[in-house]
């Protein structure tokens, strides 16, 4: 039947991909509405997660105090071990089967361990070094897109293994967000408002 879609943006920026194939799934719909970084029982394969944050209003070279990806941990099971990487490009393209799979991206030098928190809570993942490395690229421009990979390295055994997170389109769900904290500019003076728009 007809699905009515507005062309204003995509909810396909958080995806799962398979370790051994070129498949790509948006919305986590194939796994009950979850992003899976680990091993999914029925698919009998390991999965990685790609997150792409569109149109970041951060200037090139901007120093940051902290950058965290916050994910809602529905479940963490077994022995899953995973690592965060950034897509080491100036402007991360949209995910695509075969041509731009999360597992195939050019990875940043900086990385961070994926943290397992308490099930049923939002877990903060420190990706400060990754974000800073991308912002320091000469070609980074405010408004560009930034993408991340959560790559599973260990998920042995049977059954579900690893991290199950909420997807953006999960009804009533808690999608991944990227929070970036900026230091005071120029010795504590107020940061200028550089974006256009109405002052309300």
């Amino acid at each position: 039947m007809a699905d009515i879609i507005e062309p204003i943006g995509s909810t396909a920026d958080d995806v799962i991909t398979f370790s051994e194939s070129n498949g790509l799934s948006t919305a986590g719909a194939y796994v009950g509405g979850f992003l899976v970084c680990g091993r999914y029982n029925y698919a009998n394969t390991r999965m990685n997660v790609g997150l792409r944050f569109p149109a970041l209003a951060i200037d090139q070279g901007q120093q940051i105090d902290l950058a965290e990806i916050k994910v809602y941990q529905h479940d963490y099971t077994g022995n899953g071990v995973a690592t965060w990487f950034g897509h080491d490009v100036d402007d991360a393209p949209a995910w695509a089967s075969t041509t731009n799979l999360p597992r195939n991206i050019t990875r940043t030098s900086a990385s961070a361990s994926v943290v397992a928190g308490t099930n049923g809570t939002v877990v903060a993942q420190d990706v400060t070094a990754i974000v800073q490395e991308i912002l320091d690229r000469g070609g980074w421009t405010s408004g560009n897109d930034m993408a991340f990979l959560a790559s599973v390295s260990t998920a042995t055994g049977t059954g579900n293994r690893g991290f199950f997170w909420h997807d953006f389109s999960t009804p009533g769900g808690t999608p991944a967000v990227l929070e970036v904290t900026f230091p005071a500019a120029g010795g504590g003076g107020a940061m200028p408002l550089v974006d256009g728009g109405l002052v309300n």
Binding site: I8, G9, S10, T11, D13, D14, L51, R52, F53, P54, L56, A57, I58, D65, F168, S169, P175, A176, V177, L178, E179, V180, T181, F182, P183, A184, A185, G186, G188, G189, A190, M191
Partner: peptide, 15 residues
Amino acid sequence: DLGRGKRKLVQFVGP
């Protein structure tokens, strides 16, 4: 606005 000139950006993957 975090005060003292600091600020925090909260970015989602979707609108």
